[in-house]
């Protein structure tokens, strides 16, 4: 039983990172209408930046903020220079994002190298609660994610900016006539999603080592999470992340660990085919072209 709880706690921290990337994708794909395949690379860049800054002697939590800002700036640049020209042809944007992900990945290899990087546990505490060991850092990761989820959720569903954003998704022309600067919102969402990827990357490297290729592995999980939950649906991304994180965590402990990747892929294919709108419903994403 203790082992089960232990697995559960560990899966929760893994699920947190997945949720962060999933929220970024769900917002960018579902609300801004951009399929950004380089989102995983954004996360990886955030992790690498954190590694570099911590290596240079910076405190982890300061580095986390900087990594978020850096990747947010990267997202701003990408949106301004690339994706805004393909807004009405999402397929071209998608292909471009693949190009961007290849560039980022190899640029990181060029700047650093292709080996895995890790940092020492920035907190280094272990709490024992009822026979279960909880690494403090894992708990902090879960807490940070919870705060971000809450801010994002209420921002989208309650604030007037969130309302304007949702209005521009459901009827772009009317929203524009009402004076909502839709393009600026698209940029804003893209930056916010990228920022979350940067923070996710920083949190990830505090848990496991990452390599320049981590992004391309995690991106598919990010898409899985956002599609399982329903695009543009923050709550859905949380549910999706938990489902996927638990399936992974538990299948690694029990079942057949070598098939871990296959479970999430099969779940994703089934949901995409049977419920393209996701479990909790959401926008269907940009109009397919």
């Amino acid at each position: 039983m203790d082992i089960f709880v232990q697995q559960l706690v560990n899966s929760l921290s893994v699920a947190s990172v997945t949720i962060l990337i999933g929220i970024g994708i769900t917002l960018i794909f579902g609300l801004a209408g951009i399929v950004n395949f380089a989102h995983g690379e954004f996360l990886m860049v955030g992790g690498m930046a954190t590694w570099f800054m911590v290596g240079a002697g910076m405190n982890f939590f300061v580095a986390l903020v900087f990594a978020g800002l850096l990747v947010g700036a990267l997202g701003f640049a990408a949106e301004r220079c690339l994706f805004r020209f393909t807004l009405n042809r999402p397929m071209n944007g998608f292909i471009m994002s693949i190009g961007l992900s290849v560039i980022l990945q190899h640029a990181v290899i060029r700047v650093f190298n292709e080996f895995q990087k890790s940092i020492t546990d920035p907190v280094g505490l272990v709490w024992t609660i009822g026979g279960v060991d909880v690494t403090a850092m894992r708990a902090i990761v879960v807490a940070i994610t919870a705060v971000i989820v809450a801010i994002t959720y209420f921002g989208i569903s309650r604030s007037r900016y969130g309302m304007a954003l949702r209005a521009s998704v459901s009827d772009r022309d009317t929203a524009e006539l009402m004076g909502i600067p839709v393009r600026r919102y698209v940029t804003g969402v893209f930056i916010y999603g990228s920022l979350l990827a940067g923070i996710g990357g920083a949190l990830m490297i505090s848990l496991f080592p990452i390599t320049p290729f981590t992004g391309s592995v995690i991106i598919i999980r990010g898409f899985a999470v956002s599609l399982i939950g329903g695009l543009g649906n923050v709550g859905g991304a949380v549910v999706g992340g938990l489902v996927l994180g638990l399936v992974d965590g538990l299948s690694a402990g029990y079942g057949y660990p070598e098939w871990t990747d296959a479970y999430s892929l099969v779940v994703m294919i089934l949901i995409l085919v049977l419920r393209p709108q996701g479990l909790l419903g959401g926008t269907l994403g940009p109009k397919a072209s």
Binding site: V35, E258, A262, L265, L272, A288
Partner: peptide, 27 residues
């Protein structure tokens, strides 16, 4: 699945299939 879902959804399905294929081959 193209008969049910279009565009990007189908692209992601093909990507999943590809990843799944590698897992199956490896195992």
């Amino acid at each position: 699945p193209t008969l049910r879902v279009g565009g990007q959804h189908y692209i992601i399905i093909t990507f999943c299939f590809c990843a799944l294929f590698v897992v199956v081959l490896t195992n």
